[in-house]
Simulated assay, not measured.
Amino acid sequence: KDGYTLPLTNVSWTVMGTSLAGDTLVPTEYKAVATYSKTFSSQVPTGYVSTARYKGNVTKTTADTATFTITYAGKLIENGMPPVLKAVTGMIAVLLLGCAIAMLLLYLKNRQGADVYNLIDKEYICIGRQNVNPKQPVIDLNEFEDLIQSNVFQFVLDKKTTKALFGRNISVTYKDMTVKHRVNEKKGEYRFELDLGGVLDAE
């Protein structure tokens, strides 16, 4: 087989047919199976070695370290700020203090006025505050038109306004109606009520 001689290793016989010879059954046909075998060996590769060649340029970038030297020119201040700088700083501080005092005085001045209350669901509800000029004392309720729900109002003047308006009339204006009230107390907050009648009903 394929140029190789195979030796016979086994033969097996099988009876395929028989016949009677007198009173005896004898085989008349046989089948033979011959077995040939031989052991072969061969070498096959189990691995391969390959070689690769690369072409090109290989570069490497490194960060350099730079050292800088700073030289300060001038004269060292040993005894705090220079006199000129101290004077300027002092003036700025005085100006800031003056501005703060002026703002405080302006705030206190603007605080003069009246808190306005409206009777809503049987309870007085504060609907705002309005400044009152002692020279022309007027409370204009039209400013609170969107908040007003009844004809009855209560007004509370602060201490300074009460003192300034003692013995004088203050006018309360709403729509086309103006009602005057005389301030009868001089000390503390002053509280008074007004019923503007049918002003709301007339709308």
Rank of each mutant, 00 (worst) to 15 (best):
E123C: 04
L6M: 08
T28G: 02
Y190G: 06
G3I: 09
M103T: 10
T89D: 12
F40A: 10
L104P: 00
K75C: 02
A73D: 04
L95P: 00
N142C: 06
D140Q: 13
Q130N: 07
D195C: 09
N169G: 07
G113A: 10
W13M: 05
G47T: 13
Y30G: 05
Y72C: 03
T5Y: 07
D158G: 03
G80I: 09
A202S: 15
L105H: 08
L119H: 10
E203D: 13
C126P: 01
G56S: 04
E143M: 13
T24L: 13
T61H: 07
G198Y: 13
R111Y: 03
T18P: 01
V84I: 11
N131C: 03
L141R: 10
V183C: 08
A100K: 08
H181E: 00
T89I: 06
T51D: 05
N57I: 13
L147E: 14
Y107G: 02
Y124A: 02
D64V: 00
L119A: 01
I92M: 08
L8H: 03
G3T: 09
L106C: 02
T161V: 10
N151Y: 08
M103A: 13
I148Y: 08
L104T: 12
V58Q: 05
S37W: 03
A63E: 11
T161K: 01
V152H: 13
G167W: 01
T89Q: 15
G98N: 10
A164E: 15
P134K: 03
G90V: 04
L108H: 07
I127Y: 09
K1D: 04
M91F: 04
I170K: 06
S150R: 00
N110G: 14
D176K: 15
I77C: 02
N169H: 12
F153Q: 05
A93L: 05
R191G: 00
V138E: 15
L141E: 04
G22S: 07
D140H: 08
N151I: 09
I125N: 08
Y190E: 13
K31Q: 13
T28W: 02
R168A: 05
I92D: 09
E143D: 12
P137C: 08
